Amino acid sequence: MAADNSTRRVGADLAPNDVRAVRLDEIDHVILAQLTRDARTPNNALAELAGIAPSTCLARVRSLVDRGVIRGFHAEVDPAALGRDLEAMIAVRLHADARHHMAEFADRMAAAPDVLDVYFVAGADDYLLHVAMRDTATLRDFVVDQLSARPEVAATETILIFEHIRPRERR
């Protein structure tokens, strides 16, 4: 199963099938809970858990993808296995007069190979970047060359991640 991993951009108009308007029933919640625990759950097993026929389950999963409830299916790879042992969160504040470049900034950061996630946030900062780097020199170079050198960037703050603990089962 493939899904479009596109994301809504800052200031973009909401799609007619905006997920905030999507109604989910109990069966949808069962399907989503299981796929959140294990996105590789076979359709037959997923159907059995939800108490529906496999063909119905497949149609429901496709509908959840089409409606944007399921954003995608992916493998979570430990960055250390790729030689990127140092993870950090970098808070980025843009200049007030650069607000019209926010989507461009987010796209550029999302395309950077060491950036794992880009979060548009409320508060003093505009973005949080989750990055994984080879070492501190690479992290320093990224902050200096890719962030601080950008004219739209007003400030950054880097927070090192010692350990990322993901809940085993989401409720």
Score class of each variant (00 low, 15 high):
Glu163Gly: 02
Arg93Asn: 10
Asp38Phe: 04
Asp145His: 05
Pro54Glu: 15
Ala88Trp: 00
Met109Val: 03
Asp97Asn: 11
Ala33Asp: 10
Gly83Val: 03
Arg140Pro: 01
His100Asp: 15
Leu128Phe: 05
Arg8Ser: 02
Leu49Met: 13
Pro42Asp: 15
Pro151Glu: 10
Ala111His: 02
Ser6Arg: 14
Asn43Ile: 15
Asp126Gln: 10
Ala53Asn: 12
His100Thr: 12
Ile90Tyr: 00
Ala81Tyr: 05
Val131His: 00
Glu157Asn: 07
Arg67Met: 11
Ala154Arg: 15
Ala47Met: 10
His95Val: 07
Ile70Trp: 01
Arg170Phe: 08
Ala50Val: 14
Ile27Cys: 07
Leu64Ser: 06
Ala137Thr: 08
His74Gln: 12
Arg67Leu: 09
Gly11Thr: 04
Arg168Asn: 08
Leu94Val: 14
Gln34Ala: 11
Thr41Leu: 07
Leu86Asn: 00
Ala80Leu: 07
Asp38Lys: 13
His29Gly: 12
Glu76Lys: 05
Arg168Leu: 10
His100Gln: 13
Glu48Asn: 08
Ile90Trp: 00
Cys57Asn: 14
Arg60Ser: 09
Ala110Tyr: 02
Ala91Phe: 06
Leu14Glu: 14
Pro54Gln: 15
Arg108Val: 03
His29Asn: 14
Cys57Arg: 05
Pro151Met: 08
Ala137Phe: 01
Met102Arg: 09
Ser55Thr: 13
Arg62Pro: 06
Ala39Cys: 08
Leu49His: 10
Arg9Leu: 14
Arg93Glu: 14
Phe142Ile: 06
Tyr127Leu: 15
Pro16Gly: 09
Gly51Ala: 07
Thr41Trp: 04
Asp13Met: 04
Cys57Ser: 13
Asp114Gln: 11
Met89Phe: 03
Ile159Arg: 10
Tyr127His: 09
Asn44Lys: 08
Arg93Val: 06
Ala50Gln: 13
Val30Ala: 13
Asp28Ala: 01
Ala155Asn: 14
